[in-house]
Design a binder for these strands. Structure first.
Lengths: 329, 329
DNA sequence: TTGTAAGCGTTATCAC
DNA sequence: GTGATAACGCTTACAA
C-alpha cells in the first residue's frame, strides 16, 4: 500500500508538499501539483485516514444510537442523517440500543476518539452522560426524544401540538370516548403526546378517563394488546389514538379479528406517517412526521455543535394526513 | 483529555507499562497493575483508538453497504450484523447505496483505512472492485445478492429452491397461471428466483408464459403496478408470486381497490417473511428468510475473511410460511 | 518485569 | 513555494 513517502519520492518532492497538494492544491505551484497528481495516480496512493485523524484530532465520524433499528420509523430518519453526513464528508456509525448497556458502549466512542459527535435517536440520555449533564458533554443532539430538563439540543416535531391536533380531529368527528395507546415507560415523549391528548379533551370539556390510556411497545403486537384491552372494557372507546403507526397496524389487525369494522364501528388514528399506512386496510389516518428532513436537520445541528456553535432546538412541521381509518361517530 | 503519559506519570511507570497493563494485564506485576489501574481511574483515561489503530494497522470497523436502508427486509439483517459485530468488538459503518455512486464511496473506506472489511447487503459489486476481481480484493462478503461468477463469498438462502418451493405450493393448490413479480434489473438474485419459478412450472408441464413475468421495485408501489398490469391481461393469473413481501403488500392493496378478493379470487404469495406479513389483510403466505441469522452469519464470514481464513459460501434455511393470502383455485 | 526508543502516516510550524 | 522536522498517542522490539 503506497504512502505519501512513495508519492513524494516519485514526484521528487517532500511529503509535506504532497500533503499540501492534497489538502490545499492552490498553495503549491502548478508544475508541482501536476507532478504530484501524476505520482498519486501512478502509485495508486490512497490517504490513510487513521493517520490524518490522529494528527488532526478529528474523526469525521458520528455515532447514531437508535433505540431499535427494526422500527421502520427510524430507518428514514437514519437515511436523512446519512445523506447529510456523506454530503459533508462524515461517516455514520450505527448503534442499536435495543439491548441493555449498548447505549453506553456507543456513547463511549466519543471519548475513545472514534467519533466526533453523537446522535441519540429515540433514545434517552445514557446514564454515564447524564452524570456529566452539568459539566461538559460532547457534541450531542437528541432526535425524537427529550431530556426532561430540556437542556440538550433536540430535533423533532411539536409532539404536544400534534397529539392535540390528532385528538381534536377525532373529537370534531363526534368521538368523546377516545382510547390512547402510548409508548412504554414514562419518557418525556410519551408525556408530551399525552399532554396534547389531555389538552384537546379539556378544551371540549370531555372528562379524562385513566382507563382509556394504555402503554404498549411501538409495534403491532403492542397495538394488538391495546385493542384487546379496550375491547374488554365495559364501555369501550369509539376511537383509538395510537402514538405510533406500527401500533395502529396492530389495532387494525386485532379489530378485524374481533369482528369490529374500521372505521364504521371504530376509528383508528396513527402517528408517524409511515409509507405502509397508505397500504393498510383501511388506509391509516395519521400524523406525518417529516422523517428524512428530521434526519438531515439532526445531522446539521450536530455539525453546528461540533463546530462549537450553540446548537438550538429545531421544531419541524408535522401534518395531519386524512385517510380511511377514521370516520364520523 | 488524559493520555497514557498522564497515567504513566501518576503511576510512576513508563507508557509502555501502561500499554501492557491495558492489553495484557498478566504480563505486569500485581503491584504495578494495581497502581496503573488506579491511575487510569483517577485520570479518567480513555484510550485513543485512532492512535491504537494506526499503530496496529487495523480499525476494527466494517462497512455495510445496503441497497436501501428503508427496505424493512434489510433492517433486521443489519441488526444481526451489528449484534455480531459489537460482540466481537467491531464497529459498523452504515452506507446507503440508494443514491448513485455511493457504493463506490463506501467501498473506498477499506482502502483509506477506515474499515477492515466490507459487507455488500443486497448490493452488486461496485465497479471499482469489479476491476480487481482477479487480483486482490479486500475482505468482503456479499449477502442476499450474488456476483455472477460466484467468485465471492456469499451468505443467503437457496433462492432458487425457495422460489421453486413457493411456486410448487401454488401449483399444488391448482394454479397454473401464476404471475411472477421480480426485482428490477437482471441481477443474479432475480435470475435465481426466476429459475426456481420456471423449474416448478416445467416439472408439472405448465408452459412458461413471458407475459406473466413483470419486473418491479421491491416496494408496495412496485406491487401495485404489477397488479394493475396483471389485471389488464386478457387472461389474468389466478395467483401471483412476488419476490418480496413489500411488493405483495402493494398487490394486496391494489387488488382490493380493483374489487378482487384475496384469496378467494386471487392468491398472493410473498417472499422474505417480514413481520408485517402477519398483520396484512389477509395475512401473507410467504417464504421466511432468517434475517437476523443471515446478518450474524454474514458478519462471522467477514471476520473469518479478515483473519485471512478462506471465506466460503453460507446457505441458510428458509421456510414456507402458510397464512391466509393463498387458497385453492 | 520494566524502560527506552523507534515508528505507524499524516500535518503544521518554521525556516529558507 | 518548498523542505526539515516535530508531533499526534499508541505499541512493540530490544535491552536492561
Amino acid at each position: 500500500m503506497a504512502t505519501m513517502k512513495d508519492v513524494a519520492l516519485l514526484a521528487n518532492v517532500s511529503t509535506a508538499t504532497v500533503s499540501r497538494t492534497l489538502v490545499k492544491p492552490e498553495s503549491v505551484s502548478e508544475t508541482t501539483r501536476l507532478r504530484v497528481e501524476q505520482a498519486v495516480i501512478e502509485t495508486g496512493y490512497k490517504i490513510n485516514s487513521q493517520a490524518r485523524s490522529l494528527r488532526r484530532n478529528e474523526t469525521r465520524t458520528v455515532v447514531v444510537v437508535v433505540s431499535d433499528i427494526d422500527n421502520p420509523f427510524y430507518s428514514e430518519i437514519i437515511k436523512g442523517i446519512e445523506q447529510e453526513a456523506v454530503a459533508n464528508d462524515y461517516l455514520v456509525v450505527l448503534g442499536d440500543a435495543s439491548q441493555q448497556e449498548r447505549d453506553r458502549i456507543y456513547s463511549e466512542l466519543v471519548y475513545t476518539r472514534q467519533a466526533d459527535g453523537l446522535i441519540l435517536l429515540g433514545v434517552p440520555l445514557p446514564k454515564p452522560l447524564k452524570a456529566k449533564l452539568n459539566s461538559s458533554l460532547p457534541p450531542l443532539v437528541m432526535a425524537c426524544e427529550y431530556e426532561p430538563d430540556r437542556k440538550l439540543p433536540t430535533v423533532g416535531i411539536d409532539n404536544r401540538a400534534a397529539a392535540k391536533e390528532a385528538t381534536e380531529y377525532l373529537i370534531k368527528l363526534g368521538h368523546h370516548r377516545i382510547g390512547c395507546v402510548t409508548g412504554m415507560g414514562d419518557n418525556p415523549l410519551t408525556v408530551c403526546r399525552l399532554q396534547g391528548y389531555k389538552e384537546a379533551l379539556a378544551a371540549t370539556n370531555i372528562p379524562f378517563d385513566e382507563q382509556l390510556i394504555v402503554a404498549e411497545a411501538y409495534n403491532p403486537d403492542g397495538g394488538s394488546n391495546a385493542m384487546r384491552y379496550f375491547h374488554s372494557l365495559a364501555e369501550p372507546p369509539t376511537a383509538i389514538f395510537c402514538h405510533a403507526d406500527t401500533q395502529a397496524i396492530g389495532v387494525l389487525h386485532q379489530a378485524r379479528s374481533l369482528g369490529i369494522s374500521v372505521p364504521e364501528q371504530l376509528s383508528v388514528m396513527g402517528f408517524d406517517g409511515l409509507p405502509i399506512g397508505s397500504y393498510c386496510f383501511p388506509t391509516l389516518t395519521t400524523i406525518l412526521q417529516p422523517r428524512v428532513e428530521l434526519g438531515r436537520v439532526t445531522m446539521q445541528s450536530l455539525m453546528d455543535s461540533m463546530k462549537g456553535l450553540p446548537a438550538r432546538d429545531r421544531l419541524l412541521p408535522h401534518e395531519l394526513i386524512i385517510r380511511g381509518s377514521v370516520a364520523m361517530r
